[in-house]
Design a protein around this nucleic acid. Structure first.
Lengths: 225, 225, 225, 225
DNA sequence: GATGAATGAGCTTTCATTCAT
DNA sequence: TATGAATGAAAGCTCATTCAT
């Protein structure tokens, strides 16, 4: 799975009938992609530990085993690097949910599984949640924010489509109703995750899993055909 | 309403049989409280615009019309100042909700009003929401964080108590059920606000108010006596 | 013993045939002198712990139980305060040596005692030595340095006079020879103290007391009548 | 002579059968060493003028013709920079003494020359003396102080060894006696330098050179074979 | 005389990014 | 591509001293 952010990388995994044509170019591209991924992985770790603004390019470079200057051929900005990390995360979230839903049986189970696996993903990787929250603030005036924002929104929509499909299939919803349920569930689960991970639920004497289960049952009851 | 941070300020509005006894001390305290409030207000603005880490003490000082050094007699840290801003916000949120609920008629209306006014408060002051989210990350290991955290949790609990009272009164809930509903509603509304303010709802084609209305109706239906 | 630095204090202990004339003024002056001494004592402690430049007026004020502003009526500067501490120290060094020499028996013992007690004073109060060394550097361009310097030199000369008298009396020296021996001994003992207190002697495998004893014996042998 | 602080620099003057093999690396190292030395020289000047704590990194940078940030690739701390200055000084002191002693004739002259050249070095560079005195105070708890202290002690021991050798050779001393004479002379000369440079000798009517001469003669007489 | 808030300059260190090599 | 020194700005915080009260 290649999470290519910059166009050149796209040329990479074109394996097929003519493997020997340009072996040099392919190898170079593969090396480049690998190095890029090493940097992204290092960045995720450091971002998660130190926060978006608490992280220095030097720190990322150190974690990636290179120097600061070596990052810039792959990412123009700290922000672009952050976006790559986020994009990575959304992508593997989608794979995670698709996998779980694919294994579920009837439509009812698919809805419950979609919601649960969405929640579980972030629950088991709170760093990714933290990272996602940075989208709201920070991200000072840099060049390309709007473009990045659109890109990330697209990725998010892909994720939620999996959940929306399960809900619509189960409840037999039209596009409008489907959209509403997606928003409702997205909002609720995000809120639950945030309240949980910030320990606010704890402070209020609540526990996330039962709450989520209850929400899911109420939802299924409401949609029951 | 005086949002005094340091105990001494409390002596201020002691009106009684001997008002002229310590006019000097009272005046001094009032002046101090006023200057303090100016700083807090300036900080709120700047924090909201630039983020927690993006905000400099110099920036706050400039907004407050003083020098950086003039802040430190009132707040030992940037963090302490941030906590004061947040505390201020939670306090006025509580007043806002109490006021709205107090004006509502029957128990059913009180529930709907509590939820709506909670949502509306942050909707109309998205800065306060942003500010609250900083609680999750940042806030590096500084001196008093745990103490501040406890303090803010207490304030939050006071806010949610108002909502919980309305819900429990309407649905005739016991303590356990009440706690669950508080958590459920708190999570949902926070999630809705965040998704809305980060423009994710927009991107998904949803709109916050109808979603909230729908949630409220479902809740009332579920609790209906 | 009043270590007055500022003229006004001089009016103080003039007790005599007319004790009741101005009791109020005398009381005031005594109070003032007392407060002043409290500040000097606090300053000595803090200077010794944190160094000349590492000490803040706030720190001194805190140690003295007052506020920064309360120091300035007594001392115009941090430097003036430092000079007062040093002056205090030199004065009590003189008393210390005079007392020891006064108790010694024959001229030979007086010389040995003078040197030993000089060394012992600083050995048991290394802070005072540290403080004295600051004279060499630091002490940035402030107003009155030359005046203070003269004053402190005078105090030092008084101290060394006691030693010089003992040496001259024992060896029957004229003024010129006496001066030379004073310088020689002063230099040696200061060097020994500094090398000892900076742990350089330690590092070189030497020990201060035997070295001093050896020096003293050599000196006495040279001067022996 | 290169006073390299970081090991890599050591590879520099490896002249041999293949001088052209790594011209690039050698050049880079040389450039780095040069820039480093420029900073150290600037630091010595500024430290001497303004004192250890009175000196700002900005001031050093200005004197070195660079920005503050440009210092940090070479020295992690103000303290590390100070240590480099001191180390430099002790090293060239040793060279100075060795050179002078090497030129002296018989053993007697070697002793006198060692002591005189030691004194003369600091007399002609009082800044270095000042700098050395800072070792006693200041130097707050920073990271590597103990390590640096050991390093500097080693350098000092090397210096004094030269003097000790001359004395031991002349007087035919065993290790124990040699150690004692080293400490005695080290203490005396340091004290003389300090008293002279702080103008205390002046104030007492003494003059450094005759005093040193007298000390040396007495020493030689005592050790005379 | 004492308070303590305020000033204005100052500090060391770190940062993202650039660029010669 | 990669290096890592350099830039220039900025950060949070502290300081000696002043001054209205």
């Amino acid at each position: 799975m290649m999470l290519s952010h910059t166009p050149p990388t796209q040329q990479l995994p074109v394996r097929g009938p003519a493997p020997a044509v340009r072996p040099r170019m392919a190898r170079d591209a593969a090396v480049r992609a690998l190095k890029r991924q090493i940097i992204v992985d290092a960045a995720r770790t450091v971002f998660a530990e130190a926060g978006l603004e608490g992280t220095s390019m030097r720190g990322i470079a150190a974690a990636a085993g290179c120097t600061t200057g070596a990052i810039y051929p792959y990412f123009r900005n700290k922000e672009e690097l952050y976006a790559a990390v986020l994009s990575d995360s959304l992508n593997s979230l989608r794979l995670h949910i698709e996998d779980a839903v694919g294994r579920a049986g009837d439509p009812r189970a698919r809805v419950a599984t979609a919601i649960r696996s969405y929640f579980a993903y972030y629950r088991s990787r709170p760093d990714d949640l933290t990272l996602g929250l940075y989208l709201y603030h920070g991200l000072k005036p840099a060049g390309l924010t709007p473009e990045l924002d659109r890109k990330l929104n697209r990725r998010l929509a892909q994720v939620l489509d999996v959940i929306g499909d399960a809900i619509a299939a189960y409840g037999g919803l039209d596009a409008e109703a489907r959209r509403m349920e997606i928003c409702q569930t997205f909002s609720y689960v995000m809120g639950l995750l945030i309240c949980d991970c910030t320990h606010r639920l704890n402070a209020l004497g609540g526990s996330a899993e039962p709450l989520l289960e209850r929400y899911t049952q109420d939802l299924l009851a409401r949609l029951a055909p």
